[in-house]
Each structure stands twice: as structure tokens, then as C-alpha cells.
């Protein structure tokens, strides 16, 4: 198994109830696999599928990006900087 740090922001954090957590995944798991797992645990996240951005180690990534032990993964709900 590999361990990754998952970061939650804004509406995601409200749904999940925490700002970050460590998660254990099968080797070879992708960002999309992890999102699927989270949606199973927190069904209210499903509304974000298809309209969120992904980051691994603070750089934009895609659902196909493979995760590695120690990675930091962020699921980025639709952003709203500015006013």
C-alpha cells in the first residue's frame, strides 16, 4: 500500500469535515481512483464530479495521474478568487 495526504478546501472541507487526511491506497492508484473512493464515502461530493480541478504535489494533474507514496493530493472545487 501507499500513503497519500489529501487536502480539502471550501465546500469539500465542509462535506468531509476535515481539512486533510492520510489515506492508504493500492500501488498504481490514480487521482481518479481516489476521487471515486471519496465519493463512495461522502456521497455529497458526487455533485462536484466533472467540475473540479486536481493537483498532485501542488501542481495541476488529471484523473489519470498515478499516485506515489508520500504524494499530496488536492481536490479543487470550482474556484472563486476575486470579487
Amino acid at each position: 500500500m501507499i500513503s497519500v495526504r489529501v487536502r480539502y478546501f471550501a465546500g469539500h472541507r465542509d462535506i468531509v469535515g476535515q481539512a486533510e487526511q492520510q489515506m492508504a491506497l493500492e500501488p498504481g492508484a490514480t487521482v481518479g481512483d481516489l476521487w471515486g473512493l471519496l465519493v463512495e464515502r461522502h456521497p455529497r461530493l458526487a455533485g462536484y464530479s466533472g467540475r473540479l480541478l486536481f493537483a498532485v504535489n501542488q501542481e495541476f494533474a488529471s484523473p489519470a495521474t498515478t499516485l506515489h507514496d508520500g504524494d499530496e493530493v488536492a481536490f479543487i472545487p470550482p474556484v472563486s478568487g476575486g470579487v
Binding site: F9, A10, L53, A55, F60, A74, I76, P77, V79, S80, G81, G82, V83
Partner: peptide, 14 residues
Amino acid sequence: VMDRIKEIAPIWKQ
């Protein structure tokens, strides 16, 4: 720059 901030910068307004 302002348009792109609103598209991709990981910042959220409540």
C-alpha cells in the same frame, strides 16, 4: 490575469 485567476487559481470566496 484577472480572468485566469477566476478560472484556475485555488482560491475560494464565501
